[in-house]
Design a protein around this nucleic acid. Structure first.
Length: 308
RNA sequence: CGCGGGGUAGAGCAGCCAGGUAGCUCGUCGGGCUCAUAACCCGGAGGUCGCAAGUUCGAAUCUUGCCCCCGCAA
């Protein structure tokens, strides 16, 4: 069975390697074109491309798949696996594969269809999410479901750790799914679901409840980050946990700023303890290290963004 | 030429503008106090001040060039 693997970000790398390790013949990898990255605008290949090159698999990266899929056709694969590829597939492309196109999606469909299911589930405070293998159709993640598996979301998770776990889960599931697909699987239709939007860099609104703040921070870490302003500077937050707070002070007030107690900020209800952060121009550091520089004192107040 | 911050002890920072003894918080090591401690007190070790050249009697500090790290924006 010849397979094309379509994917772009890190999330797709482990599934790709799993498919290879399981002994399948991946005849080509489809990924988005190299993009300029960082301050210097260096042209950077996608993580999936790097993985493909490592395994000496031909890489296809059309700017517009919609009009430029001749190379994909020539690959002559029986089946395509998609995993966060990043371009919409047309019916013409879907029809290229006798055994169909199958998607690895990082949510328990039909919840969290779309762009940023992992971050969104975390931000929304979900206690569980998962991975779904389903048939890729023209609709946005609406195809019939073949397999799915859940995993708990812990308070110790951020988007990075959760993505990593889901990526491994997706790898296991796709390896489990391929034999089923060859045999002609039975599928389950999706129920009523919803689409989630891409995540953006977001200013923390400390007037919200502590859990909402903590989930936002963790959901946007390690990118694109929840941030806040204080004392004429911007802090990116890498990690936060909920904390107790008896004090009756306005939301956004720094309740504790000692290396021992950590950086505790009052929220609308409760408080959060920022444990990992990054000042503008600086490296990521523990709150302890940050506070050792004595930049913050108790009683100072974070800006609260205007109502959204 | 997109905008900007930074490189000083193991960590996080101050000192630089107005050149002249290497400072703070923490960690670490040793000692003390204590029933005890992550608490408190005393003491110690630990630094090519990113690199190079220049100015100067004297440079972390001023000048020039270079290297590296990072935030925003794309």
């Amino acid at each position: 069975m010849k397979i094309v693997f379509a994917g772009t970000p890190n999330f797709a790398c482990i599934p790709l390697e799993a498919v290879l390790e399981a002994g399948y013949e991946v005849v080509a990898v489809l990924t988005r074109p190299d993009r300029p990255q960082g301050r210097k605008g260096i042209l950077t290949p996608s993580p999936v491309k790097e993985t493909a090159l490592l395994h000496e698999i031909p890489v296809l990266q059309p700017e517009k798949l919609k009009t430029d899929f001749s190379a994909l056709k020539e690959a002559g694969a029986d089946l395509m696996i998609t995993c966060a590829y990043g371009q919409i597939l047309t019916q013409e492309v879907l029809d290229l594969f006798p055994l169909g196109v199958w998607n690895i999606h990082a949510s328990l469909l039909p919840a969290y269809r779309g762009a940023a299911p992992i971050a969104r589930a975390l931000i929304d405070g979900c206690r569980e999410t998962g991975v779904t293998i389903m048939k890729t159709e023209r609709g946005l993640d609406t195809g019939d479901i073949l397999l799915s598996k859940g995993t708990p979301i812990y308070d110790s998770d951020d988007c990075g750790t959760l993505e990593d776990r889901l990526s491994r889960l997706g790898a296991d599931l796709i390896v489990e799914a391929l034999p089923l697909i060859e045999r002609g699987p039975s599928l389950q239709k999706q129920g009523e679901g919803f689409v989630c939007k891409k995540v953006e860099r977001t200013e923390v609104d400390f007037s919200r409840p502590s859990r909402a703040v903590s989930c936002l921070i963790r959901g946007l870490s390690p990118a694109p980050f929840a941030y806040a302003r204080i004392a004429d500077t911007v802090l990116n937050f890498w990690f936060a946990e909920e904390a107790d707070c008896e004090e009756d002070v306005p939301a956004g007030t720094v309740v504790s700023a000692s290396p021992k107690e950590g950086l505790v900020v009052k929220c609308g209800t409760g408080a959060v303890r920022i444990t990992e952060l990054q000042p503008a121009g600086g490296r990521r550091m523990s709150a302890r290290d940050f506070l050792n520089g004595r930049k913050l004192k108790e009683g100072m107040k974070f800006d609260i963004p205007r109502s959204i």
